[in-house]
Design a protein around this nucleic acid. Sequence first.
DNA 1: CCCATAAGTCAACAGCTGTTGACCTGACTG
DNA 2: CAGTCAGGTCAACAGCTGTTGACTTATGGG
Lengths: 188, 188
Amino acid sequence: MSTNRRRSASATRAAILDAARVRFAAEGLDRVTVRDIAGDVGVDPAMVIRYFGSKEGLFAEAARFDLELPDLGDVPPEEFMDVLMPHFFSVWENNAGFLALLRAATTDKKSAAKMLDLFTEQVAPALAAAAVDRAPERAALLGSQMLGLVLSRYVLGVPPLVEMDRERLRDWIAPVLRHYLTAEPPSA
Amino acid sequence: MSTNRRRSASATRAAILDAARVRFAAEGLDRVTVRDIAGDVGVDPAMVIRYFGSKEGLFAEAARFDLELPDLGDVPPEEFMDVLMPHFFSVWENNAGFLALLRAATTDKKSAAKMLDLFTEQVAPALAAAAVDRAPERAALLGSQMLGLVLSRYVLGVPPLVEMDRERLRDWIAPVLRHYLTAEPPSA
DNA sequence: CCCATAAGTCAACAGCTGTTGACCTGACTG
DNA sequence: CAGTCAGGTCAACAGCTGTTGACTTATGGG
């Protein structure tokens, strides 16, 4: 029964950040209060401000993450999807920050801008090696399908998509991604 | 210069509803206040509550709409996309209610449920005539691409998608929709 | 053992929110 | 022309929000 009420500053900071990610991912930026997060950690709301400056600062940190997309330059084209799809699933299902950002991006301009950065600074370059030409256009189209899938499966919970297992989903989606990546673009 | 400050109740109600649709579509459910909407119409916030009961009631009405999807039973399969795509564009670009609902659906559970209803009660049945089998699964996949496109183009504003004209977008997307609608499903 | 200090609490603030009920007012009707 | 009543205003409420500064307490190093 040793009274372990005190912890190190960095541990508390990390606990707040974790709780924030979970909350923001599940309920969205506007519907989560500083008091909610502090409550989850068992700490006074003032600590949140102390460690992160503001709610906005906390969110910015909670929604920051790296897609760590593999370099497709080393991968033979016919294996692109075997590399890409598992990676996407892993990001969506293990990274609360991504869902948090997606939820916020529909109403918060800064989050929307951050989402765009993700595209132009991480997705587009990674796909540039795979796309035959017009990389930004192809990346945007591919991204739209990916975002729509995340939205439908993890945010809205569209039943057929929730029930479908990863393999079947991959088999449905992969030809589409291939299409966006390698198909001849529409005439002129 | 006759003082037309008074209008009919129904005219005021309609004006509030219009302003609400625009605001909700542009800023989302949580970031729009009753005072904002009332201000747009030039009316006291109390009127909003008088005519719609609550903010929630107003939103429910503002986000209610009909997709009016055509019956694909009469259309030969090779013309599906010629019928579907213009219809989708028309809904997205002339119907603020749809954007309002999409923005809200990422955080508001009732809105998410309403979005699901839209799928199961309007999209899936309309596509049932076009899909060879497994209509709900195919409709969900098709819907995910459509939602992703709306999100990317009209909400996030992904540059390549914003700049692309409707025809080119149709040419990119149509094969994908066809794939979801008619392709052999993944093995078992 | 003591005390400086890191870690945390507490109460309060100012602002905004949806919502309410009492009140006002202009126009039509008898 | 008086009075009714639909259409609209007004002030205020209670609750919640992010944020602040002053206070408290445990703990580890001298």
